[in-house]
Amino acid sequence: MLELSGIESGYGETQVLHGLSLEAQQGRVLAILGRNGAGKSTTLKTIMGLLPLKSGKIVFEGKPIARQPYDVAKSGIAYVPETRDIFPSLTVRENLEIAAKRFGGAAPEWTMERVLDLFPRLGERMDNGGTQLSGGEQQMLAIARGLLMNPRLLILDEPTEGLAPIIVKLIHDKLQDLKAAGLPMIIVEQNFGFATSLADDVVVVGKGQAVWTGSAEEIRADEAAQHTWLGV
């Protein structure tokens, strides 16, 4: 449903992605793995239109993707960034509402009630400031906010970074529920176990290119590939 071919992109003069290609399939979860600085976050930012596409093509649901974040969001992609980017001047409720009221049409699949069912913890914090939350709660809020956009593709950048094992487990279970409900996802992760237990497909990024592509089972079994590309 999302296809990147020959992507070149970066920050100003610094090129980070050198002809990266990958594909996320309808109804499946794709994990993007790779070492620090490989270009995983840069790939996601380029998809979202946060970084300019110097060359290559990105096609979403058969059409070239828009190049402004606002249009990318409207086309049905929700993004949970590495830094979570909760709005500090907004309460938890407002953080959710500004995403909710714009999408989903008359009978949205994701409503405020439903995301609060998924993350009851947020319900107790509705009137707190966005940054008065723990790291785990901020991550839940960032995911809930993305879901309220009723996306057809959810993109997550290192959802477990800096979280306690018990919260990592909780996030894992929730994402597993979303996967079971058929929501396509792209997950960038450092946590190999977390990523490969959720994902159907895996692409490993190294030095701005896709260096290994296959299924999650394959990479779990392929210790040579793990060693070469991930240093596991």
Binding site: L50, P69, Y70, A73, E94
Partner: peptide, 25 residues
Amino acid sequence: TQIGAMIRAGVDNDAMASCLGINVE
């Protein structure tokens, strides 16, 4: 108000606000 929250979100982080489908421009 909703539009006020959107303005504050835009002041906090305009890139993220755009990623949520807010027409910051």
